[in-house]
Design a protein around this nucleic acid. Structure first.
Lengths: 211, 211
DNA sequence: GGTGAACATGAATTCGGATTCACATGGAGG
DNA sequence: CCTCCATGTGAATCCGAATTCATGTTCACC
């Protein structure tokens, strides 16, 4: 419909549709073709292979999400606030389409797609690592290894979000409190002031950087 | 070799071998057969299908790990200590064979296997939720929703451990500090005393239980 | 109207494995 | 020595998609 969308975009949109209910498992060329109102062969005119199509899909969706996240991270607010905002933003957006989120985050497809996914996670993680480093610099966050902490945060909210144990469909009213619980967890993990030294030795210096 | 191991176990062991380098992606009946020194047909005498074989493999490995974890969790130590010990234990053991760990934790195969994997994660998560509940009861851990916090912890250390961004092979000397960093993160997330209320509203009551 | 390039179609083909099965092999019991 | 059953073999078969391609369409331009 939109004037500027090319045929290739149309196909990508159809693919997104398919993945968003049924995941990559159901992304077959036939299914996509049907959903796009085209024939199988036509798809090959725009994407050389299924793998390429999948990779393009992941790239497109993930870049949208990354932009949003980076925008939030760039607000001038204090680090802890930005951290919480990023987590919340990611969670809320993902909750709008969990099947797609799961597919984007975890469902394996093939190497090309995995590479795309990996790059995405890298970008997300870097956003968090940046915020954490900021917070460490001004003392608003406790001392950690930013990259490790960032990985943990990403893992924590992704697992809580789409892990096999997350509630199938948090009730509408519970959704927001669910988001806040997860956000609180992530924030507390890097907030200053908790008393863990007795149990975990301070390694933030020793293992910090050795290459 | 061992007297008591049946032929079925032998095959399972061969499968473990294959998965432990190459993951489930390379677990083909032909590959397993080769690794077991048998023919394809022979495997089918012991496992009705590839899916069954995979499920058996996951079940076997995961039950070993679960037992270890539950034993650690059952020590009489204070909750924060047990929490840290469980995380450390899991991480150290997983670091011994990361490819296998990744496969067991994350690599999807098919529904039957996923069910097995899900059950496993459930058990792990329950172990953590139990410890957290204990800690909340005696005040040694801050107030959270134990099941959500447990999911986050599992996600955090799994991602940091085997996520696509985790260091391919932490240097021998860095390994222990890596483990400690992750452990510290998990512990800090549920330790009391951090100041996050200004940013994250306390939802521990409101959204706690509504069914 | 005629021509060709770009675009579509979908049945036929190919392909990567899983699964089957007709045919050994070996050894325990008669 | 013969039979039978448990066990093993691996080539043949099957199956579910991906991929190709011979055969139409469309349409812009002459």
């Amino acid at each position: 419909m939109t004037r500027f969308s090319t045929r290739g975009d149309h196909i990508l949109e159809a693919a997104r549709q398919v993945v968003s209910d049924g995941g990559f498992r159901e992304l077959q060329m036939l299914t996509v073709a049907a959903s796009a109102g085209l024939s199988v062969g036509a798809i090959y005119r725009y994407y050389a292979s299924k793998a390429k199509l999948c990779a393009a899909l992941v790239a497109r969706v993930s870049s949208r999400e990354t932009e949003v996240l980076e925008a939030v991270a760039a607000s001038g607010a204090p680090a802890p606030q930005r951290l919480a905002d990023c987590v919340r933003t990611f969670l809320r957006r993902a909750l709008l389409d969990r099947r797609l989120a799961y597919a984007m985050i975890a469902e394996p497809v093939d190497e090309a797609v995995d590479a795309e996914r990996l790059a995405w996670r890298g970008r997300i993680s870097r956003v968090f690592a940046g915020i954490i480093a900021d917070g460490m610099a001004d003392g608003s966050l406790r001392s950690t290894q930013p990259d490790v902490a960032a990985s943990c945060i990403v893992g924590a909210f992704m697992e809580a979000l789409i892990g096999p144990l997350s509630p199938e469909q948090p009730a509408d009213d519970g959704r927001e409190s669910y988001v806040e619980s997860i956000t609180a967890f992530c924030l507390a993990a890097v907030a200053p002031g908790s008393s863990i030294e007795a149990i975990v030795p301070d390694m933030s210096q020793r293992g910090a950087r050795d290459e």
